[in-house]
């Protein structure tokens, strides 16, 4: 094993440890938003792991997967939040405009 391979392996292992902690938060997280946050952070760590993996095994293909995962992770977070805020994904941009919440929307969760 070369020097860089050992470093890559160590960093990958640390990222897997962080991912496991995120899974713990995902399962015990008391509110919905804790879980969304955990999923988002988990995805960020997956992206990093893919990047490290790409260089560790010398397959640049998984970098493309990492790029896609980073973009889809973002879109997924926004989509989940939009769905749970409006109970629908078909709300037009103009209907979301009012910057202040209506008073009757304060309850829930």
């Amino acid at each position: 094993m070369t020097f860089t391979a050992i470093i890559d392996f160590t960093v990958g292992l640390m990222l897997v440890g962080a991912m496991l902690l995120m899974l713990v938060r995902l399962f015990i997280g008391p509110t919905l938003y804790d879980r969304v946050l955990a999923v988002n952070a988990f995805g960020a760590k997956i992206v990093l792991f893919l990047a490290v993996f790409a260089l560790a095994v010398g397959r640049a293909d998984s970098l493309d997967i990492a790029l896609l995962y980073a973009l889809i992770n973002f879109v997924a977070t926004i989509a989940i939040l939009k769905f749970f805020s409006y109970r629908s994904l078909e709300v037009a941009l103009d209907d979301m405009k009012p910057a202040r919440p209506r008073d009757d929307a304060g309850e829930g969760v």
């Binding site: 938003y33 805020s85 829930g108 969760v109």
Partner: peptide
């Protein structure tokens, strides 16, 4: 993404 999560939680009254 962090702002979106925080904003959604804040508006839902958490």
């Amino acid at each position: 993404a962090t702002h979106a999560v925080a904003n959604a939680a804040y508006r839902s009254g958490l």
